[in-house]
Amino acid sequence: MKPVRGWSDRIFIGCLTLVGVAFALLIIGMLAADLFFIEWRNFLELYEKPEIRYATKLTLLSCLTATILSLWVAVPFGYVLSRQNFPGKALLDIIVDIPLVLPPLVLGLSLLILFQTQVGRAIEQTLERHTGWMLVYLAIPVIGSILFWPLLSGKRALLLVATLFLVIEAVMIGWVGPQLKPYLNDAFGTRVTYGIPAVILAQFAVAGSFAIRTMKVTFDQLSPRTENVALTLGCTRAQAFWLVVVPESRRGIVSAAGVAFSRSLGEFGPILVFAGTTRMKTEVLSSTVFLELSVGRLNNALTVSMVLVGLAFVILGLMRLFGLRSKPI
């Protein structure tokens, strides 16, 4: 009897590969066309302009902040969605996905409207007037003391962190606080709408959704057994989470960070509506592309686009390096 496997298998695999290659060619073609179109001497000229440098700096900083915020929300939220059952979970699951399917302009508009409500205005005013106060008496002592946490171990760690918090708080109240407060308020106290916080919030709204999705899938794939064993060995749920679950989900966390950063990098619509595209204020690289294109400077727009492409490559490379290529677990 003839063997079953043969040419038909090769044709089948060949057809599948062809589809993939066609898609890859589309992407490579687009990028190659961009590269050939650019005048490279324009690149350095463009990057001497202060507004482009500002946009690059703001892009990197805002994307980084949005990524940290996204992880901050995604790790606990992804865990709850993956491990716990509670009434309304299905609804919450759908709500998380809304920013992914909402048209970007609608998302920006919704954020803008949110900050026109009474609650939104109250937040605006608080940030504008009390940022210095909150940084000096809350954020600096809390972050300062928590930073020392990894250096401490054992039963007394919590006590030492609390003591450190009180020491920093005392220094703030008695010594540097009053001088630092107005300075920090001038430097960081700002309105949300049409300000830098709006840029970050617009990026976070979408990047957070992607990060939560990634983290939920990560926790779904992790067996709850190791966590259960940790509980029987004497851990509280929190200890099992920090000591076992978080280290085991590190690859997922790197992926979530990569996804959040790259989403933030490409964010444009919500930023345009919610933060505006004011030069030297709320302009990020994606809005630079739009601004340059709108005044007909195609080459500038392309040059900046290639910088974004380069950044995307760096992130994908880092994700591969630290995420997927880490030791098999």
Binding site: S223, R225, T226, N228, V229, A230, L231, T232, L233, G234, C235, T236, V244, P247, E248, R250, I329
Partner: peptide, 21 residues
């Protein structure tokens, strides 16, 4: 009592070792 306070030793099916340690 939560599992931590029962002070039992438990070995699940596949061992479930902590892979990052």
């Amino acid at each position: 009592l939560p599992p931590a306070q029962r002070q039992f030793g438990y070995v699940p099916q596949d061992g479930a070792l902590f892979t990052t340690m």
